[in-house]
Amino acid sequence: MSDLLIKTEKLCKTFHHDGIKTPVLFDVDMQVRQGEFVAVMGPSGCGKSTLMHILGLMLSPSGGDIIIDGCSAADLNEAGRAKLRREKIGFVFQRFNLLPTVSGYDNIAVAERIRGNTVDGQVDNALAAVDMTEKARFKPGRLSIGQQQRIAIARAIVHRPRIVMADEPTGNLDSTNAETILELFRQIHREQGITIFLITHSLTAAQYADRIIYMADGRIQDIG
């Protein structure tokens, strides 16, 4: 079996708002192998977040195809895409996107229940991996932003996905917290072998990756 986890073919995306077409991605061809730590860098508006959302099956491309773990996204319906996302992908967002009404623990437990898993030691393991066991019963509003992002990472890795997609995960954090979070990604990558796909405009953050993809104006400029 190939270790190719993600492959895109002539991926395009054009947004349509009020009859105005805004092309964002143009013929993006790229590959991510299983176990890689890849960073996508580029200036704001270059299309890197859009690329991540398409790869994470949150957005549909206007053209081209994505193959994730051997499955062509073009062949999947909405339910199939949700299943792939549920089983093989974990997301970490710049704004954390935790459910504000439940505790950190329950944020992770909800994700597990959505997957149909029983909530058992896995949640505790994920919390331990991000060093948040003690504050797991607090609601997000009572946690610092660094702690919230750690809960978000625990939620993303609890089901041991094939890939974690992180969109500017340090964008809202101070440098100390940012470093902690990036170390956490490195640790997860090394210890659990989870593929990391990191979107960032920070060179410091990108340097944690094994490989950096540079984007500008909706196109891949260079793969380092």
Binding site: G56, E87, L98
Partner: peptide
Amino acid sequence: GKEIAILQSLGASRLR
């Protein structure tokens, strides 16, 4: 809206 989007990002189906 946002909560629904979070659930979707976690892979929740439309039915769920």
